[in-house]
């Protein structure tokens, strides 16, 4: 199977157009964007080093962060003061980034899945020991360790793909 980069659905190898969203799959392949790798297991490189203590001091100025969720065609802009919690809204907790409208439950997003923090060095992503894990680009993050985020990074919470854009 291959995965449509526009909507994330599974498609047959050799299929020309995505049956779900109608995207032209061959163009995706020739651009080198479609992987035929298994979805969650492509940790071919060692993850980048987590940040050190002093780099992790909380930043003062708030920042604008935009999330794009291709499967549900949602685009959200959030103000990042010190933390954005990522998960699914429940009775006890409503995370700042609530992924339940994006089929978060079906796609394996935990109630409290991950956290995005603004620190001196920039912005970091921390997996909060979620059931199905967090992938940053091709790296599966070990739990509870902060990893720096860049503009345009691809993050998967469980099986849910999101892109992050940082102003």
């Amino acid at each position: 199977m291959i995965r449509c980069i526009e909507c994330g659905s599974n498609q047959y190898v050799g299929a020309l157009f995505c049956t779900e969203c109608g995207a032209f799959l061959v163009a995706q392949i020739s651009k080198g964007q479609t992987t035929i790798l298994p979805f969650s297991e492509f940790t071919v490189h060692a993850p980048p080093p987590p940040l050190t203590k002093e780099e992790l001091e909380t930043a003062v100025t708030p920042r604008q962060v935009t999330f794009v969720i291709p499967s549900s065609r949602r685009r959200l802009q959030l103000e990042l003061h010190d933390e954005i919690r990522v998960g699914r809204a429940g009775t006890e907790l409503i995370p700042e980034l609530d992924l339940s409208p994006d089929d978060g439950a079906e796609k394996g997003v935990s109630r409290l899945h991950a956290s995005i923090k603004s620190v001196k060095k920039g912005i970091v992503l921390i997996d909060l020991d979620s059931t199905n894990g967090t992938m940053l680009n091709t790296y599966r993050l070990p739990p509870n360790r902060p990893y720096p985020l860049k503009n345009g990074d691809e993050i998967r919470f469980g099986d849910l793909l999101t892109h992050i854009f940082i102003d």
Partner: peptide, 24 residues
């Protein structure tokens, strides 16, 4: 090796896919 699929097939499948999306 990756082959460019023939244009008539690409165009036909593109249009049929839209018809089938509507049926779905």
């Amino acid at each position: 090796q990756m082959q460019e699929p023939p244009e008539p097939i690409v165009e036909a499948v593109r249009m049929l896919n839209m018809y089938r999306m509507n049926e779905r």
